[in-house]
């Protein structure tokens, strides 16, 4: 088991190294750099920057070397000092920008996720058990609509109705009067008052997706011989469903649970932007646009790391849930 874990961690390190290289190259690919973007910004404000100014800025930001040197500098700082670099645009360390938004991002995403699963799971099971019933058709049809409607559209619809009915835009996660206050009941209620909007907006597509996964997984299992055999030996229907096909149907579900981690961190970028949520998504978007390469690169690196860690967690969970993987897969890995 330890050996298996060790191997996995080694693979993870190699994967992350490769990802970091790709991320850095891709971010540097667009013509120009942060200084070019800055120059464009100044010139729209009527201020020109001389060639000397530009060169000085490049030296100051460390953009004068070649890409490889920049990459080496960035990556070694992360590995050796845990220093994610400095954001050009905010002129602050990346960690100071990402840190404060982590709480809000994980909060919004986790709440959305739990609600999504709590709603989707029973619907998916019902839909499979009562296949081709009116309830199933309703769930499937609504699910299709939910999947097919882009999240940002739902967000826009929300904003439209909120403006025309209440005269205000539901933005952010707190009202101005509560934002800076310490935590108390009033702030919590205020947060809940704001939280439901991103939850519904992000949740609809999520529910539809999870319903489909659960339904299809379960349909695959419901007519297996072991179900008939269990019924033939008198296992009551409810117990039968829970202990037999549902357990197997959970497998594909669990194997993708790890992918939720990065999603938790970045949230839904476009929805975050539209609803002005204080999550990491809008920051990433802004950083990519202004070629704030250390900020963008660091966020993407964190996401990749979470993806890789999430996959490991999924695999360990699967091993715990499915003895075939635990007893055969890991033995195989040991040889």
């Amino acid at each position: 088991m330890l050996r298996y874990l060790g191997r996995r961690v080694l693979y993870m390190a190699a994967t992350l190294l490769a990802i970091s290289l790709v991320v850095f190259v891709v971010i540097s690919l667009p013509p120009g750099d942060f200084v070019t973007a800055l120059q464009a910004k100044y010139s729209t404000q009527g201020q020109g920057l001389s060639a000397d100014d530009l060169e000085n800025l490049r030296v100051r930001y460390g953009l004068d070397g070649n890409i490889l040197a920049q990459y080496g500098h960035w990556f070694s700082q992360i590995v050796l000092h845990g220093d994610l670099g400095t954001s050009f645009e905010f002129e602050k360390p990346v960690a100071d920008i990402v840190g404060p938004r982590l709480g809000a991002t994980i909060g919004v995403s986790l709440a959305t996720l739990i609600v999504t699963w709590a709603i989707a799971f029973p619907i998916g099971v019902y839909s499979a058990v009562k296949q081709r019933s009116i309830g199933d058709y309703t769930a499937t049809t609504v699910g299709f609509l939910g999947l097919a409607t882009p999240n940002f559209l739902i967000a826009l619809v929300f904003i439209y109705f909120s403006v025309s009915w209440f005269g205000s835009v539901p933005s952010g996660l707190c009202s101005p009067e509560w934002c800076d206050s310490a935590w108390n009941l009033g702030k919590l209620l205020d947060l809940l008052g704001h939280l439901w909007i991103p939850m519904i907006v992000i949740g609809t597509a999520g529910v539809a997706g999870v319903v489909r996964i659960i339904r299809n997984n379960l349909l695959d299992e419901l007519h297996r011989p072991y179900v008939t055999a269990a019924r033939a030996r008198g296992v009551p229907e409810k117990q039968l469903l829970r202990r037999y096909p549902l357990r197997v149907a959970l497998n594909p579900f669990v194997s993708t649970i790890g992918w939720v981690l990065p999603l938790l961190l970045v949230g839904d970028i476009v929805v975050g932007q539209i609803l002005s949520l204080p999550t990491l998504g809008p920051i990433l978007l802004g950083a990519l646009r202004s070629q704030d390469m250390y900020l963008a690169g660091s966020i993407i690196m964190i996401l990749s790391m979470l993806t890789v860690i999430g996959t490991l967690i999924s695999d360990l969970l699967l091993g715990w849930l499915d003895p075939r993987i635990r007893l055969m897969g890991m033995n195989g890995a040991r040889q």
Partner: peptide, 24 residues
Amino acid sequence: LAKLRGGDVGMIFQEPAASLLPLR
């Protein structure tokens, strides 16, 4: 019917391995 299934009447099937849940 519950008593009949597995109580008074036992039943075995063609594919023994597939008739048992692999996870338990």
